[in-house]
Structure formats: structure tokens, C-alpha cells
Nucleic acid binder design. Structure first.
Length: 471
DNA sequence: ATGTGC
């Protein structure tokens, strides 16, 4: 696979064979060997063969290998021109995303206070595999209310304040959810997991603003130098996973009926306007709303922990980085309805976009780029001139597999090193900590630099970790 | 990502 450099941070995979559009990879030159080194580039080219794809198959600067689509992949298909929807372009963890909360306190709290805060968070934030959430639902009927109304249903029940919803993508609920397309097995798994982090790279971190790049936008976001924040990264748990599993199976069996030929079976897809396409999108929206309610419940757990110290938490923004959405975009001068798949990619609306909350219209959309528990995370902002359907990077991106990380890192030792650097860790297990070692990831500073250089989003603030609750 | 496997 050859990459042709177009600009300092933009590379092209020329259209060839069954590719319908070129591939476009946003990366710094030093990130390219890591990108080319795994199978992600092949996946970018494979995605370019999907029926109805427009403009290009995109890869964000944190791209790495995933199921069918690369993680860090963006692809839009034209709904009225046979465009397809592919669950592999969303990912197993439907509407996995990040939420940032701004605390009414500045950094350097007394060490004892920080320890106490982390102890409360460690004791009260459900995490790890399997059931166990903050909100046990009464049954499927109540679950379906969450599947339709998302974070709004949680807030209605006292789990949050109305302002929270103004700072959620889609106001906390994606339209078009169809609970009847969520199977009983998925629903059963979902009943006991609302308000739980899950495992792997999911976390709740206490962070501090360590550097401000754009003071005006930071102020608009409610952030300033030294401020304490809480970042929550989680998704739709077993419910989303089961929805993906169930609908991939149906699509895999439907490929022939729709005359779709693919270079990789994991790209299983059907036309958006087909019955199985509509069924998946309805189930996907339901799972997305479950993920938003999940982050809303975890927000309340963080608020209770901070309230013990008399500190409040305001929502800065909540955004998904695993989702497909029907959006209007200009394609060759014509407004088209597109199905935009963002898998490990964050929507990044520019200033002035009508879908922004009123008080962020001038600033643009906050774009969270979580790094690792030992390095940093960024808050960026959407910019005009982003041709990847207003999409941006979503994190550092792995370079070591979990298996490699386990071979190279001792969790207990890593925990000691982090504590020695002033980062309090509350992991579910030493093994889980080792898998998520900072060395297993790309350099998030380089990813943020490349993201800005590529014109996808601009840096607003850099956050450093003070305490980590890990699934 | 995931009660980590048909």
C-alpha cells in the first residue's frame, strides 16, 4: 500500500481495483510508519469499495486496525444513491464516547483530599466485565424509555440537570431509535449495566488543565489554566455489543440478496434504505441512547464524590466516537443526505454550525481527544475547512496489542510509577492496568499536532491526569 | 469493545 504525500499532514491512497473513491490518511510523517505497519491502511482501501461511498475513505491521525473498518475511519455513503450502512463502520461498542466535566476547583488540592476523592470514586464507580450498574431498571419497558430518550430519560428521573442535555450531542438522544429491533438478549444484558464503565480502555479520570492554547475558546468551554476536570470514557456495554453481533449476522446473510461484493466479510453492509439497513439503524440509535444515559449516570457518581468536598461539576460536552448518522453535506456543490460512519472518530462541528448549542455557536464544538493515563488528553475545537465530513481524531490510538502490552508491562510496577508521578490509580486489576500502559499507545501530543496540522480541529487545552478509575 | 469461544 503506497501513500502519496499531498500536504505535510495529508496522504493519499490512489484509487485502484474495486475502490470507488481514493483513501485519505491524515497523519504526521513520524506517525506514518506506525500506520503503514499494521493492517489499517489495507482497511482504508477496503472501505473505499463500499457501495455509495462519496469523496474518500478517510483515516484520522490515530488510525489503527479494527473489525472491518479501521478504528479512526470515516466513510460517508449517499443514502439515495444505493449508499450502505455497515455495523463494522460503527464498531461493537455503539456510541462509545467521551464526556468532559469542568469542576469548580483548581489543581493542587491537598494530597489527602485527592486521596479521599479517588477513594470515593474507586468505591462508587461500577466497572469491569459483567453486570452491575448504578441504576437497576425495573424491566424491558423501562429500558425502552432509555433506548428512546437517552440521557433525557436519566435527567427526567433526577440523574442530572436539564443543562446537561444542552451540552450533549443530539441533546442526549439520537432520533430514530427503534427498541423493537433490540433483541431480548441485548435487552437482558442492558438491564443491569446502566451506569457502569466497562473495561479495557474505558475510564473515569480526574484531570487538570495544564496548558491553554486558545484562551477565548477555552473560556467559551468554561475551562481555564489549572482547572480540575473529570473525563468519562465509556459506551453501551453488553447491549451495544449484542446489537452489533445480532445485526452483523443478518447483514452477512443478506449480502448476496443485495448483490454486494466485498473484499472483507467484516465489512458486511446493506443499503441504508433496505429493511435490514433500517432495522440496524433503529437498533444502533437505541444502543447509542443507552450509552448516553450510561455516561449521564456516571456523571452523577462523579458529582456525588465531588459534592463531598463541596465542589460542583458542569458538563462541557458529550460526544460519541463510534456511530453512524444521517447528515446533510455538500458533495460537489449539491446538498446530499449521507450516512456518515465515524468509528473511533469524533464529530467536530465548526463555528456557526446550526447543530451546536446556542452558547457554543461562536466557538465551535468541543472535540475530546483522550490520551493515556500517564501522559495527557486534549480538548480541541472543530474548524471550517474540514473535508472529512467534520470529523476528527478520538484518542492516541494503540501501537501494542493487549497481548504485547501484557508481555512487556507489569501492572503493579506501572501503578507504583504512576503514583510516584502524582497520578492516583484505582484499577479493577493490575492486569487491566498493564494492558492500558501509556507505552502501548501513540504519542497523543503528536496526534493532536497532526490533527491540527491537517485542519481537522484546533487545540484548545491540554489536560494531565491526577487520578484514574480504570475498568 | 465483549458474560473475551459455534
Amino acid at each position: 500500500m503506497t501513500l502519496v504525500q499531498e500536504t505535510p499532514f495529508r496522504f493519499r491512497i490512489e484509487r485502484q481495483g474495486p475502490m470507488r473513491v481514493p483513501g485519505v490518511v491524515f497523519a504526521a510523517r513520524e506517525l506514518v510508519p506506525q500506520v503503514a505497519g499494521d493492517k489499517a491502511l489495507e482497511q482504508v482501501a477496503n472501505v473505499a469499495t463500499l457501495p455509495g461511498i462519496v469523496r474518500a475513505s478517510y483515516a484520522m491521525p490515530d488510525v489503527h486496525w479494527g473489525y472491518g473498518f479501521p478504528i479512526g475511519g470515516v466513510a460517508a455513503t449517499d443514502v439515495e444513491a444505493g449508499g450502505v450502512i455497515s455495523p463494522g463502520g460503527v464498531g461493537f461498542d455503539i456510541s462509545c464516547g467521551v464526556r468532559l466535566l469542568a469542576a469548580g476547583m483548581d489543581r493542587d488540592p491537598p494530597a489527602s483530599g485527592m486521596r479521599r476523592l479517588m477513594d470515593i470514586l474507586g468505591d462508587t464507580v461500577p466497572r469491569g466485565l459483567g453486570p452491575g450498574g448504578l441504576w437497576e431498571l425495573s424491566g424491558r419497558a423501562q429500558l425502552e424509555k432509555i433506548l428512546v430518550a437517552g440521557a433525557g430519560y436519566a435527567v427526567e428521573h433526577g440523574h442530572g440537570v436539564p443543562r446537561d442535555l444542552e451540552r450533549c450531542e443530539d441533546r442526549g438522544a439520537l432520533a430514530g431509535a427503534d427498541p423493537s429491533q433490540v433483541g431480548q438478549r441485548a435487552a437482558d444484558r442492558g438491564l443491569k449495566q446502566v451506569g457502569s464503565l466497562g473495561s479495557a480502555n474505558h475510564f473515569l479520570e480526574v484531570q487538570a488543565v495544564d496548558r491553554v492554547y486558545d484562551a477565548e475558546t477555552a473560556t467559551a468551554f468554561g475551562l481555564h489554566q489549572g482547572q480540575v476536570c473529570v473525563m468519562i470514557h465509556c459506551g453501551s456495554r453488553g447491549l451495544g455489543h449484542q446489537v452489533c453481533t445480532d445485526h452483523v449476522r443478518v447483514m452477512d446473510q443478506s449480502l448476496r440478496a443485495y448483490g454486494i461484493h466485498l473484499p472483507d466479510r467484516q465489512l458486511a453492509c446493506v443499503p441504508v434504505v433496505s429493511p435490514p439497513g433500517r432495522a440496524y439503524l433503529g437498533a444502533m440509535a437505541a444502543a447509542a441512547n443507552y450509552a448516553r444515559a450510561n455516561r449521564q449516570l456516571l456523571t452523577q457518581a462523579a458529582r456525588r464524590a465531588f459534592a463531598a468536598a463541596g465542589v460542583g461539576l458542569d458538563l462541557v460536552y458529550d460526544v460519541s466516537h463510534n456511530i453512524a448518522k444521517i447528515e446533510s453535506h455538500d458533495v460537489d456543490g449539491v446538498s446530499r443526505q449521507l450516512c456518515v460512519h465515524r468509528k473511533g472518530a469524533t464529530r467536530a462541528l465548526p463555528p456557526g454550525h446550526p447543530d451546536l448549542p446556542a452558547d457554543l455557536t461562536r466557538a465551535g464544538q468541543p472535540v475530546m481527544v483522550p490520551g493515556t493515563m500517564g501522559t495527557a488528553s486534549y480538548v480541541m475545537v472543530g474548524t471550517v475547512g474540514n473535508d472529512a465530513f467534520w470529523s476528527s481524531a478520538h484518542g492516541a490510538g494503540r501501537v501494542w496489542s493487549r497481548h504485547q502490552a501484557l508481555r512487556r508491562v507489569r501492572g503493579e510496577q506501572l501503578g507504583g510509577e504512576l503514583e510516584a508521578h502524582g497520578i492516583a490509580v484505582r484499577p479493577v486489576s493490575w492486569r487491566a492496568l498493564a494492558e492500558e500502559a501509556p507505552d502501548a499507545y501513540k504519542d497523543v501530543d503528536a496526534v493532536a499536532t497532526a490533527t491540527e496540522g491537517a485542519g481537522l480541529a484546533r487545540r484548545v487545552v491540554r489536560l494531565v491526569p491526577l487520578g484514574v478509575v480504570k475498568g
